[in-house]
C-alpha cells in the first residue's frame, strides 16, 4: 500500500478534492517528520510511538575491508508498537 490509497480513503471520507486530500496527507507526514527531526518523540495512540534515540560514537569495522573506522554519534528513529495494534495483529 502506498500514499495513493491513503489519499483515496481520505477523499471518500471528507469529500474534498483529490488534490486537497493529497495535501492534507502530505501535511500529516510532514508534521511528524519535522517533529522527529527536532528530536521530539511522536506518540500515536492505538498505533505506536516514534522515538528518537541518541547513539554514542563508537569504533566499527568496514565489513568489506576489515579497516577500523570511527562511527560518529548520531540519532536514529525507533518505532515502538502499541499493545492495541499488537493484539489486533495477533487476533487477541
Amino acid at each position: 500500500m502506498t500514499k495513493i490509497e491513503i489519499v483515496t480513503n481520505v477523499y471518500e471520507k471528507l469529500g474534498f478534492s483529490k488534490r486537497e486530500c493529497a495535501d492534507i496527507v502530505d501535511k500529516f507526514f510532514e508534521v511528524i517528520k519535522e517533529t522527529l527531526a527536532n528530536g521530539e518523540n511522536v506518540k500515536i495512540s492505538g498505533f505506536g510511538n516514534f522515538i528518537v534515540k541518541q547513539k554514542k560514537a563508537r569504533r566499527g569495522r568496514n565489513p568489506q575491508t576489515g579497516d577500523e573506522i570511527e562511527i560518529a554519534k548520531r540519532k536514529v528513529l525507533n518505532y515502538r508498537l502499541s499493545q492495541v495494534l499488537k493484539d489486533a495483529i495477533n487476533d487477541k
Binding site: M1, E5, I6, N9, V10, K13, L14, C21, I24, V25, F28, I44, G46, F47, L85, A88, I89
Partner: peptide, 15 residues
Amino acid sequence: MAVDTIVDTIKKAIV
C-alpha cells in the same frame, strides 16, 4: 477525521 482515516488505513493494511 482526516488524521483518523490516515492512521486507520495504515493500521488495517498492517493487520
